[in-house]
Design a binder for these strands. Structure first.
Length: 280
DNA sequence: TGGCAGGGGTTGA
DNA sequence: TCAACCCCTGCC
């Protein structure tokens, strides 16, 4: 690969580490104490942060970096609009500067279809396998995430070979649905969130939880509130202590009513906190 | 070393 | 509402 330029951006209220390691993306790998290798706008990049500066090496524009990391978003204003309860400040203080990324809709859809009953490390391995098997090599050992048309024209077995298990059938069918124009990811961007969610759930392997992840991590719908087993656990522990008979339906309703238009940020900070807080 | 439980859900009956 | 779906990992 020819030498590529570095972009250095002044940043505030931004922290690369929790942003890349809070479970919203599966395409980054840590390469050093504060250095990661990943993808922005379809280009292989390296990223590192020193006090007040974010550096990106690769063939990407400043605008693309700002968009991907949402560097111009008024993070503190948004967090300030979440409920002032006793719990959220603890989660905010645990990972200050964690930002929700604006990722590619197809890669996000595919990754979260693969996420069911999988741990983060395994999802990262699947992401890498799909890239190596179906992607285009942009730099030595660095493969793009394959477009849905490529997966659709392949076989379900080829996806099984990437250790997808039963998820291979889901991903292959979802790729076919997109290739055949049954659903348009570009069109979803123009739809109100509730309708966009219903459209996403027409894709094979996309239920309510995965749809909310796609809305939040790819389409910037900050009101989306994905509830997985960890978030369900933290909601029960913090907001319904000692109440055993709270249904999942009740939790969904509570989250929708309580957290408001920036619920997704509450979700992501709580999620990151409960998974990584010091063991007592 | 091998067996077993469980993991960041969705589907279909 | 609930079993079935793949298979990797951690634990004993």
């Amino acid at each position: 690969m020819a030498a590529t330029a570095s972009i250095v951006l002044p940043v505030h209220d931004f922290a690369l580490e929790p942003t890349l390691e809070c479970g919203q993306t599966f395409s980054w790998q840590r390469k050093g104490p504060q250095r990661w290798q990943g993808w922005i706008d379809g280009q292989p990049v390296e990223a590192w942060q020193t006090a007040g500066r974010l550096s990106i090496q690769g063939r990407v524009t400043r605008a693309a970096v700002q968009e991907y990391f949402q560097l111009n978003a008024p993070l503190n204003d948004w967090l300030a609009q979440l409920p002032r309860d006793a719990h959220l400040p603890i989660a905010f203080a645990f990972a200050p500067g964690l930002r929700i990324l604006r990722q590619d809709p197809w890669e996000t859809t595919a990754s979260f279809i693969c996420s069911s009953l999988k741990q983060i490390v395994q999802i990262q391995q699947i992401n890498q396998s799909l890239r190596q098997r179906f992607g285009m090599e942009m730099a030595p050992g660095r493969f793009t995430f394959p477009d849905f048309s490529i997966l659709a024209s392949g076989t379900e077995q080829a996806l099984r070979d990437c250790k997808l298990g039963y998820r291979a059938r889901h991903l292959h069918r979802a790729a076919l649905q997109l290739q055949q124009g049954e659903i348009s990811l570009a069109e979803i961007a123009r739809r109100p969130t509730a309708e966009a969610r219903q459209d996403l759930m027409k894709l094979q392997g996309v239920g309510e939880k995965v749809a909310n992840c796609i809305l939040l991590f790819a389409y910037g719908r900050l009101e989306a509130f994905p509830i997985d087993v960890w978030v369900e656990r933290v909601l029960r522990e913090l907001y319904f202590p000692g109440k055993r008979r709270v249904t999942s339906q009740r939790l969904r309703q509570f989250a929708a009513d309580y957290f408001g238009p920036y619920a997704g940020y509450a979700q992501q900070y709580l999620f990151h906190w409960i998974r990584n807080r010091p063991k007592v």
